[in-house]
Structures are given as structure tokens and as C-alpha cells.
Design a protein around this nucleic acid. Structure first.
Lengths: 80, 80
DNA sequence: GCCTCTATTTATAAGCT
DNA sequence: TAGCTTATAAATAGAGG
């Protein structure tokens, strides 16, 4: 989406990479939020920005609880 | 996106909820993938489907490594 | 469940402030 | 450098197989 088609490869310009991160992070969190509501599911999203700062989202449960649900799965079920 | 505007609230029809989950899960993972490449970041996405099955994605690192990076943050930095 | 189609909504790349 | 605009790319709701 946007004025031009974007190739999916690393954005080399630092400023541009940070700007794109901010915009797409917001979009991704919005989508994760919508999915959690529409489908009534547990979800956890963890991201580290290009400068190393944490961003995260989780729905109805605390993120630690979702991670625990993942970690506590039998190892065979963690394939995805 | 779609033929009609969708209200963001729980989809009550079971079949429909599962179908929407499948479609949007794919979209969300694609977006997470693109973000990880474009901005060269660590990302982890964990979802449990309406029927309780796990879906997950992580970029260049194993998901366990991203979770560890999160868990090992000083507690004050986990605000997001 | 999983794919295809397509009208329509939504996200967003650049540009601008 | 974060927010606003807008033309355009992309996702997807619903229907059908």
C-alpha cells in the first residue's frame, strides 16, 4: 500500500527505516488487536525497534500469561 | 477490506470465526515477516486459534530467543 | 478445511507541514 | 521529527468450488 510498490528488503536509510517501523508497528498492533477481538483468541506480539526499544501487544490476557501458555505446551505442539 | 465494513467485535458464528481467523492469521504473519525484513528487527508472534491450536512466527531469530530477550529485559523496560 | 475471485475497505509510501 | 494528506498498493468479506 502506498504511492509505489515496496520491495521487501532491508531499508538501508536509517531515518526511513525508523519511520517505516513506527508506521507498520502501529498497523501490526491494530491488526493483532482486531484479530484478538474478532476471533476471541490469545495473542502475544513482541518487537524490538531498529534502535532496540521494545514494543509489545497482547489481547485479553497479560503477555506473560500468553508466553506461559506457549512455554507450557508439550514440546511436540510447539511446531506451530 | 472486504465487501462490507466489519465491526470489530466477537464473531459469534463458529465456522465464520475460524475462517476469519485463518485468513487474518495469514495476513498478520505476512505483515510481521515484512516488518522484520524491512526494518531488520527481532519479532515474535504467538496466537492460539479459536480451537486452541498454536500458530506462531518469528523472524531471523528463533522464537525462544526473542522471548528470552523480552524476559531478560529489566522489568522497567517491559512497559512497551 | 483450503483455494479462487473480486468488490470494497483498509493500510501505507511519499510528500508536506 | 512526529503528525497530516492523498494517491496507490494491499488485505480481505462474502460467495462459490
Amino acid at each position: 500500500m502506498g504511492r509505489v510498490k515496496l520491495q521487501i528488503k532491508r531499508i538501508e536509510n536509517n531515518t526511513n527505516r525508523q519511520v517505516t517501523f513506527s508506521k507498520r508497528r502501529n498497523g501490526l498492533i491494530k491488526k493483532a488487536y482486531e484479530l484478538s477481538i474478532l476471533c476471541d483468541i490469545d495473542i502475544a506480539l513482541i518487537m524490538f525497534s531498529p534502535s532496540g526499544r521494545l514494543s509489545h501487544f497482547s489481547g485479553r490476557k497479560r503477555i506473560e500469561d500468553v508466553l506461559a501458555r506457549y512455554v507450557n505446551l508439550p514440546e511436540n505442539d510447539r511446531g506451530g
